[in-house]
Write a protein that binds this DNA or RNA. Structure first.
Length: 574
RNA sequence: GCUCCAGUAGCUCAGUGGAUAGAGCAUUGGUUUCCUAAACCAAGUGUCGCAGGUUCGAGUCCUGCCUGGAGCGCCA
């Protein structure tokens, strides 16, 4: 389906080129100025600010606008062009074109506004990537929802998309996880043993230990922490997948951090960086001040392996391999991203918590140090999530304390249990990733008109309801004459046709939340029409009813598409 | 101290350098012989954190400052 704003931009640019060619305007490079829907009625459906050209064309903006309007070629979607001071060119869409879109929408179905800015290029979205040491938390959930929506939008924009989870199953944390489970298991067997403060404290390890004791009795008594690590990891992996599946999220690939160790790729990466002169051995980094040096001395460190990331603009150099010979998290992370780029992704979106900002910068420096272009790596930083709740006594929003007491929650599982997968997805998505998110527990729990989740889904339900009823009455939209549609229906079509641009903006700016706001806006256009524009009613002539039924068929298609883009279900009934 | 994010209606937040700044919730009043009222209609609320600057035009861009959050580890 055409993106009308793009079409109009091209027509205007063509008209400008013609005017320059004829000498009506002086020679200048035509800038790309976006056409957008104006805010007010009477200003048309698409608007181009001709004033932007005044300086370049050295001409009165109104004159320029008039010149363009007069020479703009005809197009099937344009009804008329008006010029408004100080220099807007307002385009009114043709009614017959709009009415015809109803059939186009139905024909495209689930591919409604499948655009092609990706042109089949390979894109990857790496998201969640939570450490397998505990359940998916409310923070991971936001990451999951944003990442999956981004993947769906990239698909809608014509990219081939792979969803990947970087599975941090290497490093000290996994050792601690294994030892924690081992200690819990022994406690289950009745041993009175110390459980250190730096072990994983969560109740879930106690539960797993209890299951192990049930299954194996004391048969695992002599097993080492490695065995417990493997069992803990397997359970965590299964748990994480189950939690994510509950909100309809599935990764195509889990990329194990350990594979980078086993294949020795991390060492290859380190050597490649060393060959280019970015690696050195030292007890402290080259730019360390006296205080840092004194600190290092007091700790008695042997020399470590440093990456001179300051060459790429970093504020200090970073340790790649600790003095005990164990790599930091950063080295495999760089190796991982090199691998991503070598797999040939044109876009590699990385959804990360804002607390990973510095780390992501270092990885990009590392990629540059390998003489590779980090440009395909695009990072969406997600700001913090807090669960909040209205306190009627203080009259303020309050942060919900994370606790296991009834009513409070801090995991995805509990969140879904208290609300619903759809509610979680919508509310986590309907916010700019750059904004901190206050997740209002009570509002999400409410299943009423106070909740935009159901407002949007109900639009689809209503479309489905009309069809159910029509079918029962033996009525259909065969041979519908779309010219019988009225201004209300056209209003919906106009809004629905903005979807292509919404998808493009969301993809180009890596802002998947835009789709959630658009869905809400479109539902707000739909519901008043539903109340007003009846199909199965005695006073509606049969031919008009058929046209309207076809319209609601198209509306249903659009809402289905939107709900799927957000990863939400499209129920036929509430 | 440095870096990043945010500050817009009572609350939670949208807002492509364009026209008279928007939505949901909350508040108030109304609507159903008709496809599910989880809906609709109507009403009110703004120093867009502050001060400068750029521009024909700034909530949006630049500079400085204030407030809140995140980061600045031989953790992952």
């Amino acid at each position: 389906m055409k993106q009308l704003n793009k079409e109009l931009e091209q027509l205007i640019e063509g008209a400008l080129a013609g005017a320059i060619h004829r000498g009506d305007l002086p020679e200048f490079e035509i800038p790309s100025i976006p056409v957008s829907p104006p805010k007010r009625a009477g200003q048309g459906d698409l608007s181009y600010p001709g004033m932007s050209l005044a300086r370049l064309a050295r001409k009165n903006p109104l004159e320029i606008a008039n010149l363009i309007a007069a020479t703009l070629p005809e197009a099937d979607f344009i009804d008329k062009i008006e010029v408004a001071p100080p220099g807007f060119i307002n385009c009114f869409l043709s009614e017959s074109y709009l009415k015809g879109q109803v059939d186009r929408i139905i024909a495209e179905g689930e591919d409604f506004f499948q655009i092609d800015i990706g042109a089949g290029q390979k894109a990857q979205v790496e998201f969640v990537s939570a450490n397998p040491s505990g359940p998916i938390t409310i923070g991971h959930t936001r990451n999951a929802v944003v990442g999956d929506a981004m993947a769906r939008l990239l698909e809608a924009a014509g990219y081939k998309v792979q969803r990947e989870y970087y599975y941090n199953n290497a490093g000290n944390q996994m050792i601690v996880l294994g030892k924690s489970l081992m200690a819990r298991y022994r406690q289950q067997l009745g041993e009175d043993i110390n459980f250190p403060a730096d072990y994983y404290q969560g109740e879930y390890l106690v539960e797993i230990a209890a299951e192990l004791a049930e299954e194996h009795g004391d048969a695992l008594k002599g097993a080492g922490w490695e065995r417990f690590k493997d069992m803990a990891e397997a359970r965590m992996f299964e748990w994480i997948n189950r939690s994510l599946a509950a909100i309809d999220i599935k990764h195509d690939r889990f990329y194990n951090e350990t594979s980078l160790f086993e294949s020795e790729r991390i060492w290859a990466v380190l050597e490649a960086m060393r060959d280019r002169g970015h690696i050195y051995q030292s007890p402290h980094w080259e730019g360390a001040d006296d205080e840092e040096i004194a600190d290092v001395r007091s700790k008695g460190y042997e020399p470590a392996t440093w990456f001179r990331s300051t060459s790429f603009g970093d504020e200090k150099d970073r340790v790649m391999v600790k003095s005990d010979g164990v790599p930091t998290y950063t080295l495999p992370d760089i190796a991982y991203h090199r691998d991503k780029l070598e797999r040939g992704f044109d876009i590699a979106v990385n959804v990360l918590g804002a607390d990973h900002f510095s780390q992501a910068q270092v990885v990009k420096h590392g990629i540059r140090a390998l003489n590779m272009d980090p440009d395909p790596i695009q990072v969406i930083f997600i700001q913090m999530v807090r669960a909040v709740r209205w306190n009627a006594e203080t009259g303020k929003m309050e942060v919900v304390k994370q606790s296991k007491r009834a009513g409070d929650f801090d995991t995805l599982d509990e969140l879904v249990e208290m609300t619903s997968a759809d509610a979680v997805r919508y509310h986590m998505l309907a916010r700019s990733p750059n904004s901190q998110l206050d997740f209002d527990v009570d509002q999400v729990v409410k299943q009423s008109n106070e909740n935009p989740v159901y407002y949007i889904q109900n639009a689809y339900v209503r479309c489905a309801g009309i069809f159910r009823e029509a079918q029962e009455r033996g009525f259909n939209d065969d041979g519908a004459d779309l010219s019988l549609l009225g201004e209300d229906e056209l209003k919906f079509i106009r809004k629905a046709l903005e979807l292509g641009n919404v998808i493009e903006q969301a993809v180009r700016n890596y802002e998947p939340h835009k789709i959630a706001f658009f869905a809400q806006e479109l539902a707000a256009v739909f519901h008043p029409i539903y109340d007003k524009v009846r199909v199965l009613h005695g006073e509606v002539p049969v031919d008009v009813a058929a046209a309207r039924l076809r319209f609601y068929r198209a509306a249903g298609v659009v809402f289905y598409r939107l709900l799927r883009l957000m990863g939400m279900s499209a129920p036929e009934r509430m």
